[in-house]
Amino acid sequence: MESEVVDSKFLESMAKRRPFMKRMFTVFISQEPKRIQDIRNALNDRDQERLRHLVHSLKGGAATIGVERVRACCLEMENASKAGDLEKAAELMDKLELEIRRAYAFMFKYLAEH
């Protein structure tokens, strides 16, 4: 079974802290598009160390707010960059961009409804 865009257990755990979660979603939406572009630039520049650092940072942010599929994709990209397999990392970029768009859509909808 494919995991949820945002982990339902995370959402339940944050139910009583909705204003805090809304702030976290807002920060994620406002900051991560630049990091996604930076990741793409690192791939294009074949900057393995910068790529590893950027996807590691995004992985942590995604894990913090329950965006599991983004986190998992970042982990795969981080492992590929550690192994020096930039072709594999590049293949994963489209998947990462798809999952991040799904996360943004979920967050925008959540913010509109709460």
Rank of each mutant, 00 (worst) to 15 (best):
M1H: 12
S3T: 14
S3Y: 02
V5L: 09
V5W: 13
V6G: 07
E12L: 14
S13P: 06
S13N: 09
A15T: 15
R17M: 11
F20H: 06
F20V: 15
M21Q: 15
M21W: 01
R23A: 07
F25S: 10
F28E: 03
I29S: 05
Q31V: 01
P33S: 02
P33A: 01
R35E: 14
R40H: 11
L43W: 11
N44F: 04
D47R: 04
Q48D: 00
R50L: 10
H53P: 00
H56P: 01
G60N: 03
G60D: 01
A62G: 00
A62T: 00
T64P: 00
G66Q: 04
V67Y: 05
E68K: 12
E68A: 07
V70R: 05
V70H: 02
R71Y: 08
A72P: 03
A72F: 10
C73P: 13
C73L: 10
C73D: 05
C73E: 12
C74S: 07
C74N: 14
E76K: 15
E76T: 03
E76M: 06
E78P: 01
E78N: 06
A80L: 15
K82A: 05
K82L: 06
G84H: 10
D85Q: 05
L86W: 03
E87M: 15
K88C: 03
A89D: 00
A90L: 08
A90I: 00
E91W: 02
L92T: 05
M93Q: 12
D94T: 15
D94C: 12
D94I: 09
K95S: 06
L96K: 08
E97D: 13
E99T: 04
I100W: 09
R101F: 12
R101T: 08
R101K: 12
A103P: 02
A103G: 14
A105R: 13
F106H: 04
M107H: 08
M107F: 03
M107T: 08
M107W: 10
M107A: 12
F108D: 13
A112N: 08
A112E: 14
E113A: 12
H114F: 07
